[in-house]
């Protein structure tokens, strides 16, 4: 299964192969969770979104366009689900509930890991002050490293609109990060 191309796996999944569907989930769930978590800052909500995203992917697999990458399609599903969630009354209520998440990264030392984890959590908190669209653009462009064209495709926005949202998001994040470093430097000096 691992040797098959994604097109072949999709074809097998369309044919009703449970193994192919399982493989698609296993292959993409980590990445899907990472994106959803960055949007929502909460592991429970992120898991719910990932579950719904794969169900939608499964249901609409027959509409899949082979010219588009599967990950791009999954990005679109997750981004739309997260935006709907953030715009919903429940999502607005959950906006500030950022949980401390256990992240694993083997290439850096434990002190650095703690610092990076702390910064990551703080970025989540700072991003919760952005509008859903600004947040989406910031996550996809700055945290997921997608190109402007890809962001445009995923969010169905014009390049101008993406850049405008990105400008406001970066400006707000920069102001908040500046405050964060000022306070953390003060704590260190004490």
């Amino acid at each position: 299964m691992a040797e098959s191309t994604s097109q072949e796996i999709i074809a097998q999944a369309l044919g009703g192969s449970n193994e192919a569907i399982r493989f698609l989930v296993v292959q993409n769930q980590a990445f899907a969770y990472s994106v959803a978590y960055r949007f929502l800052g909460n592991s429970e909500d992120a898991e719910d979104i990932v579950q719904e995203a794969f169900i939608r992917l499964w249901k609409n697999l027959h509409k899949y366009n082979p010219e588009v990458k599967l990950t791009t399609w999954l990005y679109r599903i997750i981004a739309n689900l997260c935006l709907d969630f953030l715009k919903s009354a429940y999502g607005r209520q959950r906006k500030n509930t950022v949980d401390v998440h256990p992240a694993v990264h083997h290439s850096i030392g434990s002190d650095e890991l703690i610092q990076s984890n702390e910064l990551n959590r703080w970025i989540q908190e700072a991003a919760s002050g952005l509008t859903p669209k600004q947040k989406a653009v910031f996550i996809l462009r700055d945290l997921e490293d997608l190109s402007v064209e890809e962001v445009c495709g995923i969010l169905s926005m014009s390049a101008g609109n993406v850049k405008s949202n990105l400008y406001y998001a970066r400006k707000q994040m920069s102001e908040k990060l500046k405050k964060y470093y000022q306070t953390s430097d003060k704590i260190r000096t004490i």
Binding site: S34, Y37, A103, N120, L143, D145
Partner: peptide, 9 residues
């Protein structure tokens, strides 16, 4: 640096 740490399930 922060984004290099991916949230894990």
């Amino acid at each position: 640096k922060a984004k290099s740490i991916k949230p894990v399930i």
